[in-house]
Computed example of a mutant assay.
Amino acid sequence: MSMTFNPDPPEPTPEEMAAALADLEHLANSRPAAPPPAPKMGETKRVRKLRAQVAEAHLLADLQDDDTPILLDTPKVRTRRTAAHQAARLHALGRDPEMRAWQADRMRKLLVTAGLVSLTLALAWSTAGVQHFAADGAPAWSPGWVFAWLVEPFLSLALLVVVGARAFLGVRGRPLNDRTLVRIEWLFLGLTLGMNAWPYLPFIASDFTVSRLVLHILGPVVAVAIVTALPIILAAFAALHHDPDGTPTGPSYRANAAVDELTARARHLVETGRLSADSGADKFRRALGCGMDTARAIRDALRTDPARGEPGR
């Protein structure tokens, strides 16, 4: 019997190599964990506690150099940053011309509404005084006594028509400063004031007291104040610029366009002979129903009209 010796054994296949590696990994994982190091001779509980504190201190020292926790925003910082960002946005919005124009328009309407309501209440306050004057001692519930209650209401309604029209047109940028309307306002207010005050004037009232006189003229005085102040307030709003840098905005351009339109109308009146180019500003104001400043601008524009060939005066 002969035996053949093969000096070069065959190479293992990939499947055999994978199986061998799996066996080695299984053996390594199945080895029991190494037991904790036995305490050294003479190492007491106090020593082990101190050793743990020293190890903890080394770990804390390594982590202390990391500034990442400091860079994070706390809830208080985030709240403050949010509030600052919102304040900056509101400040920028408050300087926006459109926002400023909207705020001015809202405030102007609010003031006009409050003024008209106050005027209505002031005229209602004077109703009793006017009724006492108009009744002239008529018995209660007699026709003269009843109709006397209607005097103040129809005067107030007529006055409110004029004041309301001027207020509405003033809000729309077209102030109505016609002298006839102003005279009508003062006529109604003068009648209301006179009828309230007359029965309580000195040498008229049987028992004159200043307090009674002031009490009865309070309503007409408030009405006079409102009618006088309202056009001035509306004129100030009409001349208001909404650009914080002082640049005229849309309402100013519309005002300039209105002046140009009135100038064209005045030029037509001059050409048709209804006005003279040398007329004063007051005549232009009455003919066009505009303010005195606008009338002066129109007068100067016509006097420097190239068609006349004359320099401005």
Rank of each mutant, 00 (worst) to 15 (best):
L121T: 09
G94I: 00
D260R: 11
E11R: 04
F188T: 01
F284L: 12
L302W: 11
R212C: 02
Y200Q: 13
R106I: 08
L111R: 12
Q131T: 11
R172G: 11
E56H: 09
A20H: 03
T79S: 15
R274W: 12
L90D: 04
G246P: 10
W125D: 14
R172H: 12
M195H: 04
E98W: 03
S142C: 10
V221P: 00
A18I: 01
V270T: 14
V224T: 03
S2N: 00
Q53C: 06
R31M: 04
A55Q: 12
P306C: 05
I184H: 02
R51F: 02
P32H: 02
P37F: 00
V221R: 00
D8T: 07
R285G: 09
T44N: 06
P175Q: 07
S156K: 01
H216C: 03
D136Q: 15
W145V: 07
R106M: 10
A297S: 14
L121C: 09
T113H: 08
S2E: 01
L123R: 07
P37D: 04
P311S: 01
D62M: 13
E185Q: 11
H132F: 15
R108I: 05
E152M: 13
L21C: 01
S206K: 15
F188Q: 01
D305V: 07
A205I: 11
R183H: 07
D245L: 15
D278Y: 13
D260F: 01
G170C: 06
L93P: 00
F188H: 05
R80A: 15
K76T: 15
L72N: 15
W102L: 09
F133V: 10
L71C: 13
G291K: 08
S118N: 06
R267V: 04
D136E: 14
Q64G: 14
D293N: 14
A61F: 11
I184Q: 04
S156G: 07
A20Y: 02
M99H: 08
R212W: 06
S279Q: 11
A61C: 10
P32L: 04
W102K: 09
A277W: 15
P39R: 12
L240K: 15
P143V: 10
I217P: 03
L111M: 12
L269D: 11
Q53S: 09
V221M: 08
V214S: 09
H26Q: 07
R108T: 14
L50G: 01
A223N: 04
E261L: 08
K45V: 05
V112F: 06
R81I: 08
Q86C: 03
A295D: 12
V227D: 02
V162K: 00
A135Y: 09
P244V: 11
R286F: 07
E25Y: 01
R299G: 11
T4S: 03
W141P: 03
A239L: 12
A87Q: 09
L110H: 10
L275A: 15
L60P: 05
A165Q: 05
A257G: 04
H241E: 14
A84C: 04
Y200H: 15
V117L: 14
M99L: 01
L240M: 14
V221L: 12
R286A: 14
P75W: 14
W125Q: 13
L201F: 13
L193G: 05
R106C: 09
K40A: 11
V259K: 06
E98F: 03
A165T: 05
